[in-house]
Design a protein around this nucleic acid. Structure first.
Length: 484
DNA sequence: TTGGAGTCAATATC
DNA sequence: GATATTGACTCCAA
């Protein structure tokens, strides 16, 4: 915090992420001095509420507003999170203002969170109320004509405070606003010297090695939702705590899900092509919602009842479209298409199976190349879910050739979880046996789109490979040994 | 109890 | 030094 006692955040009652990061009262406060009502609104899109001020916005114009940010969020019309983050980044960059300052002063978030938000904003409709809060704050801030000035002032004050602290002009205990203060205190060096009270509570951060991550990714490909048993085995094989493995799976699912949400964004400067989530290096084409809906109702997509292709695909398409979120036609349409395409490819799999009974070795390679192109985690649940409870995974490190030393023995249940329908109508611009072809599409798109498509297809191929293997195992009741 | 969402904060990278 | 990544954590809902 730049100020030792910034004015209280708009909603004192609600949770602030950290005592260290208390936002100033942002635009709410600014309304006291700049009574420019139209500039303080949330930037209502024309379609929302007829473009008129909502009660929340009206309240914003009153300095004594009793409304907290949560109320504002609850009453806020849909905001374009991408546009907001884009604009915020622009303003911050143009004015040489850092994410940390902005986050702590305006959003009440730490730098890492701000970075995350700015580079990977979720669509508004995918956000919880709490998740929308920062975007409302950003919008309010953007609408404040003096936003930059205020932030600059804070920057100056923060610098002053820092210098004072640094040169002992201020008692060290008097302000805890700067993260640097704390980080100094908890630096490993100090911690190890027991010079800091925090050292007694702070655990050293676990840093997973590349091999461990790789192994976890591969395990994830097999079981995105591993059983306790699997987790424990993974943990012991990798010499990690079970909690670490659990956390890793949580985080990975969550982050992959978010990557999926980013898929098909319009070409703002957070172009989906350019900020892929590193753990996966690539992204997945399906969303969480899709994942769930595909495994839902009467079961899974892997119905044991043979479905006619012609019946299945339109149904799936319709379902995907029906449940797809309203609005954002461009993005969503794009995502929709890829999801449907991916799904339809997945359902085609049984057909492929017969064509590639002996292709396990061949299939393995793309799977193992997960650093390059892991399968869509999100969609994977849909595909793997039926097998989930039936996958017995055992790890035998010594026998594995690759470095993490992991081997899984997969013993799926018999065919109740098995395959779906055979041939489906081919999605446009894909070939009939594309699922094992890493680059099935002709380069008919722009280089950027083409790369994206290729990547997506690789992922689809991987997904199908996995499904293929699971299906085979299920059908043959055989045990597959999956090498890591 | 489990999983998703959101976040912190240490660390890595630019 | 600023930003990105990521393991860990809290909260909440099912």
């Amino acid at each position: 915090m730049a100020q030792s006692s910034p004015s209280p955040p708009p909603s004192p009652a609600e949770s602030h992420p950290s005592p260290l990061v208390e936002p100033v009262s942002l635009a709410l406060e600014s309304s006291k001095e700049n009574q420019q009502p139209e500039s303080l609104g949330l930037g209502l899109p024309p379609h929302s509420e007829g473009g008129k001020s909502t009660p929340s916005l009206m309240a914003l114009h009153q300095p004594t507003t009793p409304l907290g940010i949560q109320e504002l969020v609850a009453m806020s019309p849909e905001l374009d999170t991408y546009a907001i983050t884009k604009k915020v980044k622009e303003v911050l960059t143009d004015n040489n203002l850092g994410q940390r300052l902005f986050g702590e002063s305006i959003l009440g978030l730490t730098q890492g969170s701000v970075s995350d938000l700015l580079s990977r904003p979720k669509p508004w409709h995918k956000l919880s109320l709490k998740g929308r809060e920062p975007f409302v704050r950003m919008q309010l801030w953007l609408n404040d004509p003096h936003n930059v000035d205020k932030l600059r002032d804070m920057k100056k004050m923060e610098k002053k405070a820092y210098l004072k602290r640094r040169y002992g002009l201020l008692s060290t205990g008097s302000d805890s606003d700067s993260p640097s203060t704390r980080s100094e205190c908890v630096s490993p060096a100090l911690a190890s010297l027991d010079m800091c009270p925090y050292s007694q509570v702070k655990k050293p951060r676990v840093v997973l090695g590349a091999e461990e991550k790789e192994a976890l990714r591969k395990a994830y490909l097999l079981e995105p939702y591993p059983s306790q048993n699997t987790i424990e085995m993974l943990a012991s094989q990798l010499n990690l705590k079970t909690n670490t493995v659990i956390n890793w799976f949580h985080n990975y699912r969550s982050r992959m899900r978010r990557e999926v949400l980013m898929e098909g964004l319009p070409d703002n400067d957070t172009d989906a092509e350019h900020h892929s989530y590193s753990p996966s290096v690539t992204r997945s084409p399906q969303s969480d919602g899709e994942e769930r809906r595909l495994q839902q109702p009467s079961g899974h997509i892997h119905s044991s009842r043979p479905l006619s292709a012609n019946a299945a695909l339109p149904h799936v398409k319709q379902e995907a479209i029906d449940r797809e979120d309203e609005g954002e036609e461009g993005r969503e349409g794009y995502m929709r298409q890829s999801r449907v395409q991916c799904f339809s490819m997945a359902v085609q799999f049984p057909q492929l199976k017969s064509e590639h009974e002996d292709s396990i070795a061949g299939c393995r390679e793309p799977l193992l190349d997960s650093g390059k192109s892991p399968v869509d985690p999100v969609s994977f649940k849909a595909s793997s879910e039926p097998c989930r409870s039936s996958l017995e995974v055992s790890l035998n490190s010594p026998s594995a050739a690759s470095s993490p030393g992991l081997m899984m023995s997969v013993s799926p249940v018999p065919s109740s979880s098995a395959p779906i329908s055979p041939s489906l109508p081919n999605p446009p611009s894909t070939s009939t046996n594309h699922s094992l072809d890493p680059n099935p599409l002709p380069p008919f798109q722009s280089p950027k789109l083409n790369r994206s498509t290729q990547r997506r297809n690789e992922k689809m191929a991987n997904l199908n490979n996995i499904i293929h293997r699971l299906e085979r195992a299920a059908n043959r009741e055989e045990t597959l040994e999956w090498e890591f």
